[in-house]
Design a protein around this nucleic acid. Structure first.
Length: 108
DNA sequence: CGGTTGACTGTTT
DNA sequence: TAAACAGCCAACC
């Protein structure tokens, strides 16, 4: 994927406010990438949990799948994501899902 | 060039 | 509800 596309993805993710979450597909659409949700996953994976190539901190933990579940559930990174979200007041229910009706980012 | 593999998603069982 | 399927498309052999 182009560096341009990656940059636009990070721009969108950086715009997600604390305490809210967006789905991969939502980020893709807002970044002008159509339905390429998987591409968003690739870009976030490239972050390796850290900052982007320009040293910018990207709130990757605020991106979850369309079912309100953490695609990284079951992994160490998934646990980190769960805690980062909890610190912002975004909690998972007893089935490991986020109430999207309440926490989904609404773009103004 | 061709096959496989996903930080995905919407539809159909 | 949940699992199976079918599109999807860039990265990586």
């Amino acid at each position: 994927m182009s560096d341009e596309a990656r940059r636009r993805i990070y721009d969108v993710v950086c715009a997600i406010p604390p305490g809210a979450v967006a789905s991969y597909g939502q980020v893709a659409a807002l970044a002008g990438l159509g339905r390429r949700a998987r591409m968003v996953g690739q870009a976030l994976r490239a972050l390796g949990g850290g900052a982007d190539e320009r040293g910018r901190e990207v709130p990757w933990h605020r991106v979850v799948n369309a079912q309100g579940r953490l695609s990284l559930a079951g992994t160490t990174a998934g646990e980190v994501q769960r805690q980062l979200l909890a610190a912002e007041g975004v909690l998972l229910d007893h089935r490991g899902r986020i109430d999207l009706g309440r926490f989904r980012w609404q773009v103004e």
